[in-house]
Design a protein around this nucleic acid. Sequence first.
DNA 1: TCAAATTAAATTGTACACGATATAAATAGC
DNA 2: GCTATTTATATCGTGTACAATTTAATTTGA
Lengths: 155, 155
Amino acid sequence: MRTSVQDPAPNDDPLRLDRQLCFQFYAASNLIGRLYAPVLAKLNLTYSQYLVMLVLWEADGQSVGAIGKRLHLDTGTLTPLLKRMETLGHLVRQRDKEDERRLRVSLTASGKALRGKALGVPEIMTRGQNLEELEALRRTLADVIVTLSAARAHQ
Amino acid sequence: MRTSVQDPAPNDDPLRLDRQLCFQFYAASNLIGRLYAPVLAKLNLTYSQYLVMLVLWEADGQSVGAIGKRLHLDTGTLTPLLKRMETLGHLVRQRDKEDERRLRVSLTASGKALRGKALGVPEIMTRGQNLEELEALRRTLADVIVTLSAARAHQ
DNA sequence: TCAAATTAAATTGTACACGATATAAATAGC
DNA sequence: GCTATTTATATCGTGTACAATTTAATTTGA
């Protein structure tokens, strides 16, 4: 048995791309984003914007920090993202009268109405898949995220 | 049993953030990138650049398209990324004499030497983890990526 | 053989992500 | 009450991602 000319890296090479779990998360995440994009474009949302809408549909009027905690994003990402969504008319950003540092992000009527159109998205994206397998993977990844968040916090 | 004030979304709401596998890939991928960044900074590499190096350390002198196929990235991402890496001195980009459309990407001496420093990275990043569990997840994700790539191709 | 089709990479424009820093409001401690 | 600290968000600069378009080289086929 010999290694091919194309790929001379031996199986036990720790730097083999195929062995990197980090790369698989990277590739899967990018591929998922590309698959969602055309579906979400019909709702006038990007993929990141869709995630923000999921957070706000669960509880309206959250602060930037609360949304960021939920999505594991900081203000460097969220502030411009939320401004674009305000321009698009999905939400409004207004300072909290109780505490002027806080910014409350609230859905507009059209932002709330968009939820009805979004209801079909999860089914469209998982059509033809084994739902038990997806659920098992979902649970595994929930643990992974807890581990990664903890590692990040201890850094 | 009642739902909390914070999260009035019922458990069977298809739009609950916690139920979205897509979000878990997104969050995990972002968190992984943040954990790798400071480690790779010591090698003067970003996370994406590290992935390119993994591809080239396996087989030097590949075309932009070949690298892109491996990483599931297109030229819109790779061209500027490779130009930055050339400026940094990790690689050189030169047209193939046989076919002037192709661009061969080749490691410099310092790019090759960097591999020695990178050898410790996988161990650093998986330290304290259950390696059997990571390996099982790696296999699951390999299947996921095949499914996602096929879905992308059929689109 | 030569125009049409294909292929490979670059370019353009938009939208994230992220660390680092800045700004301003609220709170703490004395 | 007043300053030091903390908290919440914004800003800045760099580096991806991606679709769509463009450019240039190669291959095809009548």
